[in-house]
Design a binder for these strands. Structure first.
Lengths: 253, 253
DNA sequence: TAGTGGTCTAGACCACATG
DNA sequence: ATGTGGTCTAGACCACTAT
């Protein structure tokens, strides 16, 4: 497909100066396929040659589109096998969104305990962040994460109700998988990237009780806004991390 | 140059199975040039065609090498002009290593006040992080950063003495430029990436005094190890951030 | 007008995985 | 043996910048 005049071709130049490179258009088409669920997480997408034939472009152009999607972790290339929709369960992505590391030893998944899961109407600020209208249905989840029996994280999540129908405390408790893996397999929502604001705060009475520390203990406050495909925000999260034996790891690059 | 047997050629296959793609070898050669100071920050490197001729490879191979170096922020491409060695002073990189943001309003550079700058012998832990031997000369810098007159950051830096000869409190105070810009222009050390460990801690008496808060106030503790070209560590930094009107911004991608 | 990076194509061969 | 992604080449034209 040549959705716009091909730069290298002999077609008449377009009247409007609204250009985007062919590979960007291909990239957008693939992203739309991901968003629409045409290929689910873990599945293989068509081969480069097949996509090139389908879109009537050269293999190199498809390659460049896929290269960028792989760099953004939406796709995973595997030589000799194919290109696959990225998954939260594969090792490479395992700890991409779990940034709390033990000061000593290997990173591992914590035990999760659901404290609360209820549906309610979105407060103004949550609605604004999730691109909803105030009063739209949302799901609130509160939980405690523990490493080796030691509670270290107090989490509060806000999710669009429309996307998470049937999400209950029971299902959350039954599922042994990490949250994002479960969201991906059960609700078809794949988290792609997030923006975070990090602060140091003092534990209030409730946080102190849940994390079994003295009130006033310094905690890491992490405000996260998480996006799925096409930069759609789908989760607001407020986390309180106890950083006496753990730290938040970050790479500035 | 064909440093190894060219994959596409008809040369005899190499005896040893020690391969790396041509473009990776070109990338390494360019990185060596950057490390050796062949092209200084802000300068233009040779054009793609020139490099292709020099190394006896196709332009596309040089392009792929430069693409990766640009993605890693070592180089900056400018259409129609050339490819340049990245600089800390250009807008795009301005706030890459300064992650403290005001909760409201635009990000800006803080005023810096040098508290201390002295040369000493490296303690064991600093030496280990900087790839030095214990006792090797290091420079320690302590400073306070203030936003709009409000002290918000207490910083302690450890630098290899051999790379920062002539670094004094006077030169630090005179220089109005951001620290990394000054390191780059004055000492030829370009910071490329960093790894950080973030925790919430309580302000001790000294930190409380310097930041003008009550002792015990929660502060963000940021332990940073900063690398220059070729993954050489060149700075250990411990920062204490006051996050009442600011936050540490982070993108998980 | 000339030189730079940016895009696109077509074709070749290599390395890896599977049947 | 076949199909996949990975690398490399050669050449074309476009868009931008400077002179």
């Amino acid at each position: 497909m040549h959705p716009e005049a091909p730069p290298g071709g002999t077609a008449t130049p377009p009247a409007a100066p609204t250009f985007s490179p062919l590979y960007q258009q291909i990239k957008a088409l693939i992203t739309q396929g991901l968003e629409a669920g045409e290929w689910r997480p873990g599945e293989m997408i068509p081969s480069e040659n097949e996509l090139a034939a389908r879109y009537k472009v050269s293999q190199g152009t498809v390659r460049k589109a896929i290269d960028e999607l792989a760099a953004e972790h939406l796709l995973v290339r595997r030589q000799g096998k194919g290109t696959f929709v990225a998954t939260h369960t594969e090792p490479r992505a395992q700890f991409r969104f779990l940034r709390l590391m033990p000061d000593e030893g290997e990173q591992a998944y914590p035990e999760s305990q659901i404290v609360d899961c209820r549906r309610m109407r979105a407060p103004a600020e949550i609605a604004r962040n999730l691109d909803l209208k105030p009063g739209d249905p949302v799901v609130v989840v509160r939980r405690v994460l523990a490493f080796a029996g030691r509670p270290c994280v107090l989490d509060e999540l806000w999710l669009p109700g429309a996307l998470f129908r049937g999400l209950t405390a029971e299902r959350l408790t039954e599922s042994r998988a990490p949250l994002y893996s479960m969201f991906e397999s059960e609700f078809g929502i794949k988290m792609v990237r997030a923006e975070e604001k990090i602060r140091a705060v003092a534990a209030d009475a409730e946080a102190a009780r849940m994390l079994r520390v003295a009130p006033g203990t310094p905690l890491l406050s992490v405000d996260r806004l998480t996006y799925t495909y096409a930069d759609r925000p789908v989760e607001v999260r407020r986390g309180l991390y106890l950083t006496t034996a753990h730290h938040y790891r970050n790479a500035v690059s």
